[in-house]
Design a protein around this nucleic acid. Structure first.
Length: 500
RNA sequence: GGCGCGUUGGUCAAGCGGUUAAGACGCCUCCCUUUCACGGAGGAAUGACGGGUUCGAUUCCCGUACGUGCUACCA
């Protein structure tokens, strides 16, 4: 590629960034970095009525958590600042003016009621209808001047040509064509002087020297407006290459994945926790339920893309290296939370225990557990294979931190007897003679005690486990005892012997 | 309604005219583990439909169906 690759993610701060948005960020980022280019974050806040406080900060937080930091953004700065469209308002005006002056756009004075009436029966504001509407094409120059003088609100609309075919070479979908008669004269500049998405995206992509533009496929129908704008503004040579990304769909049924689906089916659709400022509803994110950011990113990357090999687990660096935009799928993918969890399981298994220990701390703290890093790392070494989420460090390892308050008596009571009671007492008495307290010594000692008592090992293994952990689960029982230490092991066996 | 985009097992998907149609998740069976997981072995399950083109279509073309997106002074 001749020009330096520059891509942008351009969200509207109208709510929490969801899965699909993060995936768009990711593909932008991967593409840019794969080509040694730059990744820009631009905030598209042209609709003041939909602005949600906190949403912009949320975007920064998510990108940071995912490790997808932009090279230029409102907070990182950059040579094309400002990166917030609301702060670029004056820039758009001159281009709207240019379009009007050159006859490619016009002023429209129609009221909401007039528009509604026009649309009755699927009408659209186009070459056929605009003659009967109140605009600078149908009105005389004097009338237009008078209306503006009176302060009648107006918008600027693009003048779509009648029955022309426009072509678009999409990096994902190949060649697409559109008939200009099928899209109406979109508003470019609103009555408040703010641009709509259509004008703003073209102007900013041009001014920011964007070379490749990625967006969701919901934008496909308005692509002809943008192509035309690039032409009308005389920038055709600089138009970025487009790629329209497939949607992420709900797991059951069809349709775009929404927050409601997540609530209904029990999984998050946001990366991080989010409190809706309007309703005060809190939704936990992937971070809060115990996902590793690497797993989250990995899972999103392969939801709509793969490198053609059987590899499924990728680090960010590998993704950067292997990502190719033409291998992005054209079909929307249904989201599968079970598979998402599998990615996290894989990442937990392959992540260093000291790193995991650090990440697990807040989850344990939430449960009132504090443990020193060394001990925690040892615990995680034993239980990491059975953890799917970071929250499982607690659910799988709680007994390492606190003495079980109750034990699953039903698991052993039926076959409990005096012989076993005596066995455990005698076994514990032998502890004081033990030179070391480790797995090998313990097990050997246990085996000897079993032989001396003349009982089967199998009969006392499960009881021992239940005494130590409270139930029929967990890693090797002697490994548990080793980590617990002699004092705690004795304490737990004694506690159990009392209730049995 | 109009237009765009799409359609390989339940889900994610490989494949790019000739294959026993990969692999993964989930499910089932067995093994391992004197627990539970992890792991291992195996299993069930797939080309929307109808026409072409071709010696040969999952693969190319056209219809139909279905799905989905857009059709705002929202992005």
């Amino acid at each position: 590629m001749s020009k330096k690759v520059r891509v942008r993610f351009a969200p509207s701060p109208t709510g929490a960034l969801h899965l699909g948005g993060v995936r768009t960020v990711l593909y932008n980022y991967l593409f840019a970095k794969h080509h040694g280019g730059e990744f820009i974050l631009r905030i598209e806040d042209t609709d003041q009525s939909r602005y949600v406080p906190g949403a912009e900060q949320y975007i920064y937080d998510c990108l940071k958590w995912c490790g997808l930091e932009p090279d230029e953004s409102p907070t990182h700065g950059g040579p094309y600042a400002p990166y917030r469209q609301s702060e670029r308002k004056p820039m758009y005006l001159q281009y709207a003016q240019k379009l009007v002056d050159e006859g490619n756009a016009y002023y429209a004075f129609d009221t909401a009621e007039e528009l509604e009436q026009m649309r009755n029966g699927h009408g659209q504001y186009d070459a056929k209808k605009r003659g009967s509407m109140r605009n600078s094409l149908s009105l005389s120059a004097e009338e237009v001047a008078a209306l503006k003088e009176q302060g009648v609100p107006y918008v600027v609309r693009i003048k779509m040509p009648e029955n022309e075919t426009l072509y678009l070479e999409d990096m994902v979908r190949g060649e697409l064509s559109f008939n200009t008669s099928l899209v109406d004269d979109k508003v470019l500049l609103k009555a408040d002087g703010m641009p709509t998405y259509h004008l703003a995206v073209v102007v900013d992509d041009y001014l920011m020297k964007i070379t490749h533009a990625f967006r969701g496929e919901e934008w496909l129908p308005s692509a002809p407006v943008h192509i035309l704008l690039w032409k009308y503004l005389g920038w055709e040579q600089d138009m970025p290459l487009w790629a329209h990304l497939p949607l992420i769909l709900k797991p059951d049924g069809n349709g775009k994945l929404s927050k409601r689906d997540g609530d209904r089916l029990g999984f998050p659709v946001f990366p991080l926790g989010w409190t809706d400022p309007k309703t005060n509803d809190y939704s936990a994110g992937y971070k809060e339920i115990g996902f590793l950011p690497q797993a989250f990113v990995n899972m999103l990357a392969v939801l709509g893309w793969n490198d053609g090999s059987e590899q499924e687990i990728f680090t960010l660096d590998e993704l950067v290296q292997k990502f190719q935009i033409d291998r992005v799928h054209t079909t929307g993918a249904k989201f599968d939370f079970e598979k998402a969890k599998w990615f996290n399981t894989q990442w937990i298994m392959h992540t260093d225990v000291t790193v995991l220990a650090e990440m697990a701390v807040p989850f344990l703290k939430e449960k009132g557990v504090t443990a020193n890093a060394e001990y925690l790392a040892k615990v995680i070494t034993l239980i990491k294979d059975r953890c799917h989420l970071l929250t499982d460090v607690y659910t799988q390892g709680a007994f390492f931190f606190t003495t079980p308050e109750t034990i699953d008596e039903s698991a052993i009571k039926d076959k409990w007897n005096e012989v076993k009671q005596t066995f455990f007492k005698q076994w514990m008495e032998g502890f004081t003679a033990l030179a070391t307290w480790d797995v090998a010594t313990l097990e050997q000692n246990f085996n000897d005690a079993v032989a001396a008592a003349g009982i089967k090992k199998g009969e006392v293994m499960l009881p021992l486990r239940v005494m130590l952990v409270g139930g029929k689960h967990g890693p090797g029982v002697f490994q548990i005892a080793e980590l617990l230490g002699q004092e705690e092991t004795v304490k737990r066996i004694n506690n159990a012997l009392v209730v049995l």
